[in-house]
Structures are given as structure tokens and as C-alpha cells.
């Protein structure tokens, strides 16, 4: 089974987010970048599938050279090879088109994305790739079993779950549930050593125009100071929620 895991390279969840003085971009100073947490679940799922069915795991990122440590980490966790498409990930459409071109030129049985990148919170790329390639797509995928050429994929839907049966190849936008947190693989010494010699292929991009532009970033307005209410006086809380916050 040939599996492609799409990896985005994002600020660590504990990062303090600041923007450049002109407000045009994220200020990367002091920010540590990691494998997008949703993609970590996908990568571990790919390893489980490979262990059960055999095959190869390729990880891919659309990004500049700064994302290579993230791809190397994915190799250390257990992917067999990595591909970096050397383009600025301008917007989701440009990323999706680059991924589509790569997928068309190679044959994958399964394409695993994360539900969302925690940087720009797009939730766009996987559904776009699926639509461009007319492939079955399970978003918010929390369960996946593969039998021969068919997949059973469970998606979170509002208020519950839905399970789909699809023929491979298919695409998922995965999240926790695909594998459990405790099963997430982390790199060990042997993995780190072997990652150095695993192939990391550099692909030059097609020239693709995006359809959106980020104009400006700002931080949300700071909260006013918290109002404390005595534990013995919950009636006061009810009053404030009703009269002041108009929340009940």
C-alpha cells in the first residue's frame, strides 16, 4: 500500500503568537515549528497501516527550506521518504494544486491529511485536493479500516458520526481517534539516525496563482479584568450573567 501523508509545518501549540510590526505576517522570532498535531495522528495511522498491509509511506510538504527539519522528523518517526515542493504556501488553493500535481504523477492508495493546520486554521487543503482529483473524502476522520481495495472511514458530523464505504484511492482529513494519543509515535535514536539517510526529494513547483491574499494580522482585543464573585453568592453570578453580560 502506497500512502502519502501531507504534513504542514506550524507553530508549536504553546507558542506565543506575535505579528511583524507592519502587521503583514507572523513574526517567527522565538517560535518553534512542529509537525501539525493533526498530521501526527495521520502519520502514526500510516505506520499502523503499513505494519498491517506493507507498502511505503511518503511524507510531503509544500514549503521552503525551513520546513525540512519537520520532514526529517517525520522520517525519524518512520516515514520511508519525503518530498518537499519548493513553494511558498501562499494559500490553500496553491498548496492543493501542488499536491494534486504530485499525486497525479505518482500512484497512491491513500492520501492522509489532517483536518486542519493549526496556524491559519484553513480546513481547506484536503477537501480541495479531493475535489480536484474526484476522490472520495472523509473529513474529521476519526476511524479508518482498510480491506483490500475498500476503506471504511468514520467522520465526525455535527452531533455524532457517519461511516462511509469507499474504494481506494481516497483522501482523509484526520484527527485524534484515527489513533489514540498514547499510541502516537515519537522518534527514537535509531529513527533519528536512519532519517539522515532516507531520501528527501526536492521538487520545483508549478507556477500557480493564489486566489486570496492576507492583508493584515492583529491580535484579538485583550479581555477586561475578570470580575470575581464569592463562592457563597451564586445569585450574584446569575444576576451579572443576566443583567450585565446578557448571556442568559
Amino acid at each position: 500500500m502506497n500512502i502519502l501523508v501531507c504534513i504542514s509545518h506550524v507553530p508549536d501549540t504553546t507558542a506565543k503568537i506575535n505579528f511583524t510590526a507592519d502587521g503583514k505576517a507572523l513574526d517567527p522570532n522565538g517560535v518553534q515549528f512542529v509537525i501539525n498535531p493533526y498530521d501526527e495522528f495521520g502519520l502514526t495511522k500510516a505506520l499502523h497501516l503499513k505494519e498491517a498491509h506493507g507498502g511505503t509511506i511518503t511524507v510531503i510538504n509544500v514549503g521552503l527550506a525551513e520546513t525540512e527539519p519537520t520532514l526529517r522528523k517525520a522520517l525519524a518517526i518512520g516515514a520511508d521518504k519525503a518530498v518537499r515542493i519548493n513553494a511558498i504556501p501562499e494559500d490553500a488553493i496553491t498548496v492543493a494544486k501542488e499536491l494534486k500535481n504530485h499525486i497525479k504523477a505518482n500512484s497512491y492508495d491513500l492520501i492522509i491529511c489532517g483536518q486542519e493546520s493549526i496556524d491559519y486554521n484553513g480546513q481547506q487543503v484536503p477537501a480541495m485536493v479531493a475535489a480536484m482529483l474526484k476522490l472520495p473524502f472523509s473529513n474529521a476522520c476519526v476511524g479508518l479500516t482498510i480491506n483490500d481495495n475498500t476503506a471504511l472511514a468514520t467522520s465526525e458530523i455535527d452531533g455524532g458520526h457517519a461511516t462511509f464505504q469507499a474504494n481506494l484511492p481516497m483522501i482523509i482529513g484526520g484527527k485524534k481517534g484515527l489513533v489514540e494519543e498514547k499510541d502516537l509515535r515519537i522518534p527514537n535514536m535509531r529513527g533519528i539516525m536512519s532519517a539522515r539517510t532516507k531520501p528527501l526529494e526536492l521538487v520545483e513547483p508549478s507556477i500557480i496563482d493564489g486566489t486570496t491574499n492576507a492583508l493584515h494580522f492583529e491580535k484579538p482585543a485583550p479581555k477586561a479584568a475578570v470580575k470575581m464573585v464569592e463562592a457563597g453568592n451564586v445569585e450574584e453570578l446569575v444576576r451579572l450573567l443576566h443583567e450585565e453580560a446578557k448571556a442568559i
Binding site: A92, I93, G122, P126, N139
Partner: peptide, 23 residues
């Protein structure tokens, strides 16, 4: 941006060369 809408909007953008703002 419901669960279903989160698939529909990007898929539509891809099919019709749209420009999309999610979230």
C-alpha cells in the same frame, strides 16, 4: 462552517476556481 459546510466550501472553491475564506 458546520461539519458538512467544512467539506462543501473548499470542494466548491476547488471545482469553480473560487477564492475562499473559512473561519
Amino acid at each position: 462552517g458546520t461539519a458538512l459546510g467544512k467539506t462543501i466550501a473548499p470542494a466548491l472553491a476547488a471545482l469553480n476556481n473560487g477564492s475562499l475564506s473559512t473561519n
